[in-house]
């Protein structure tokens, strides 16, 4: 899938889609959209990027392991729910504040951070699945390792092992 067109379009497309995903996430409370859809759009964007430039490029671009992003999202969502304890209201009660930022009243709420958590979990988990599968199906094998001639089904592993030293976090 390393076509020239895809490689040319992919960065712009990914950037646009990521931007759009954040837009969809933030407007979700009053217009169609929300964390689930936003997360899926972002995951698709990264999947496209991965198809064009390989898994390694996506991992480098993300900086964190996708599962860590998902974990952070789950943590954020739980925290948004737990915050209500400080105010003596039941778990998951929405809390709103209206700070004035630059003379503009900005409504902020725990439901927004909760939705952000949903977004991150969906993004992280699905990117993680997609990358794992893409990585598994990549067939870039250095000649040195072909010499050991393992059975065909082990082929994908090779790409992974090669990358492992670059990304030690990903091994465990």
């Amino acid at each position: 899938m390393n076509t020239l067109i895809l490689r040319t379009v992919a960065p712009a497309l990914t950037a646009l889609m990521l931007l759009f995903s954040v837009f969809v996430l933030l407007r979700g409370h009053n217009e169609p959209g929300g964390g689930f859809i936003g997360g899926l759009i972002a995951a698709s964007a990264l999947a496209i990027y991965g198809i064009a430039f390989g898994v390694g490029a996506v991992r480098r671009a993300l900086r964190f392991h996708p599962m860590a992003i998902a974990g952070a999202g789950l943590f954020l969502a739980t925290l948004s729910g737990l915050l209500s304890i400080l105010f003596g209201v039941p778990f998951m009660t929405g809390l709103w504040v209206y700070p004035r930022i630059l003379g503009l009243e900005v409504p902020l709420a725990t439901v927004i951070s909760f939705d952000l958590g949903v977004y991150l979990v969906v993004l992280g988990s699905i990117v993680s699945i997609a990358l794992a599968l893409e990585q598994d199906s990549e067939t870039e094998i250095p000649d040195a390792e072909v010499a050991q001639a393992p059975p065909l089904e082990q082929v994908p592993l090779r790409g992974k092992r090669r990358r492992r030293d670059r990304q030690p976090r990903e091994t465990r």
């Binding site: 979700g28 409370h29 929300g34 964390g35 689930f36 599962m67 998902a70 974990g71 999202g73 789950l74 969502a77 739980t78 729910g81 778990f91 998951m92 929405g94 439901v111 909760f114 939705d115 958590g117 949903v118 979990v121 969906v122 992280g124 988990s125 699905i126």
Partner: peptide
């Protein structure tokens, strides 16, 4: 999803993860 049934959603994203 995010407010009235927030606890459900929390469980659901945990499943996704």
């Amino acid at each position: 999803i995010v407010d009235f049934r927030g606890t459900d959603t929390l469980g659901e994203i945990a499943v996704v993860m």
